[in-house]
């Protein structure tokens, strides 16, 4: 079967709307996990960037991506990229708001101090390097006194 530009667009938008298994309100595109959808004359490949190499949800995401393409009659190959490295700032601004409002989860900004998703304060105290998942640490907001989770940046310690 020959892949047309329109096939590629359709598959891309179907794959982009695949939900993340851990945050079902968010898509893999919003979380910055979808890197690229590429095609040659006869096949389509989806490149994904894993949040961490040991993420147990990788095979679920792979199966969901393949199923989304299959519903449109396309078989795709899924490749987990070694580069680039996923960082929390790959999460879109919209998705950051949803994480803050719906899940009480903040992300580590590249610059400056992490903001409390409940009160907006900037006085988070770290309580545990890791939380319910390996990619989130547990903090305590000294201002509104709520427990807060922060998506860790593997490259920089949480401020």
């Amino acid at each position: 079967m020959t892949i047309t530009q329109s096939d590629l667009e359709t598959v891309r938008s179907a794959v982009a709307s695949v939900k993340d298994p851990e945050y079902p309100d968010l898509t893999i595109e919003q979380l910055g996990i979808l890197e690229n959808v590429v095609a040659d004359a006869s096949s389509i490949r989806v490149d994904l960037v894993p949040t961490i190499l040991g993420c147990p949800a990788l095979s679920t995401i792979e199966q969901d991506v393949k199923a989304a393409a299959r519903r449109l009659g396309h078989e795709v190959a899924v490749q987990f990229c070694r580069s680039p490295v996923w960082t929390p700032d790959r999460i879109t601004k919209d998705a950051q708001h949803i994480l803050a409002n719906e899940y009480t989860i903040a992300i580590t900004p590249r610059l400056g101090r992490t903001q409390c998703p409940v009160c907006g304060g900037r006085s988070l105290e770290k309580r545990s390097d890791v939380g319910p998942t390996a990619c989130r640490s547990v903090h305590w907001c000294a201002e509104c006194r709520n427990p807060v989770e922060v998506v860790r940046s593997r490259e920089a310690p949480v401020q």
Partner: peptide, 11 residues
């Protein structure tokens, strides 16, 4: 939690 996460990373 820390050991569990580190285990996950190593695997």
């Amino acid at each position: 939690l820390a050991f569990t996460s580190i285990a996950q990373d190593e695997l």
